[in-house]
Amino acid sequence: MTLLWALRFLAAMAAGIIVLVVGFLIVESIPALRSVGLLRFINDPGWHPAAGALHGEFNLGPMLVGTLAAAGGAVLLATPLGLGSALFSRFYAPATAGRWYRRLVEVLAGIPSVVYGFWGLVVLAPLIGQWQPPGQSLLTGTLILTLMILPTVALLSEASLRSVPASYLRGTAALGLSRWASIHGVVLPAARGGILTSILLATGRALGETMALLMVTGNVVQVPRSMFDPVRMLTSNIALELGYAMDNHRSALFVSGLILMALIAALVAMAEWISDERLHA
């Protein structure tokens, strides 16, 4: 009974914190939403908020595009790689190699994002810059992001592959199926839910990543016309300017935060929908 109440209390607290965070974002956003207006956040010619509500420009659209493009690209790249890595270490790797390989992926997961960013800034960006200047670009950001979310997909997918009952595998072996046929026909469908969850979690991390991207994407506010154009993420926008922003500029940055929250909420809703409609249909 006490346990039940303790759990209820903890759940209420977790929910309460989310409500508080969203409420805080809304309260801080209101001055900008009121004096600038929602429409200008998508219609203004650019992003120059320091000049104030009247003369400033407040378009967040290009940053929304930047965030979606980098996160989307990274998920597209990391999903096959991560799934491949999970299948390799679960079914194809020799036991010892598989164990060491898994450790390696775990280390990859633990590297702080600022280290990826630093490496991207001093190694990857100049490398890409030699080929397609300036080097700090959507592509660089997407590649760094791919590296960062790859371990999430790999480790969580592998966990869900491991949770497929051994009896299924014995069944496929008894039927004389090849390794690939049993993976393709039995294991992957059985682990589908967990794999999808891993992709969604990785997407969430990709949308929210800040520091590494701030250092490698060039941070120019524009809709990219190619992979080699610099872009700015909604998250980097907050990190770059919050410490230096006043009044409506500051409030406009909270609007960026609100948009990010909305993106994540949409992602969670999509996850719910997928697991309800597709998995148990």
Partner: peptide, 25 residues
């Protein structure tokens, strides 16, 4: 502010220096 056409936007001085050190142009 809106007349400047940057190719890269940076935060602090060191980020700018690392960017220039990594890009000959």
């Amino acid at each position: 502010a809106n007349e400047v056409r940057p190719g890269i936007v940076i935060g602090d001085n060191l980020q700018g220096i690392l960017t220039v050190a990594g890009d000959p142009n």
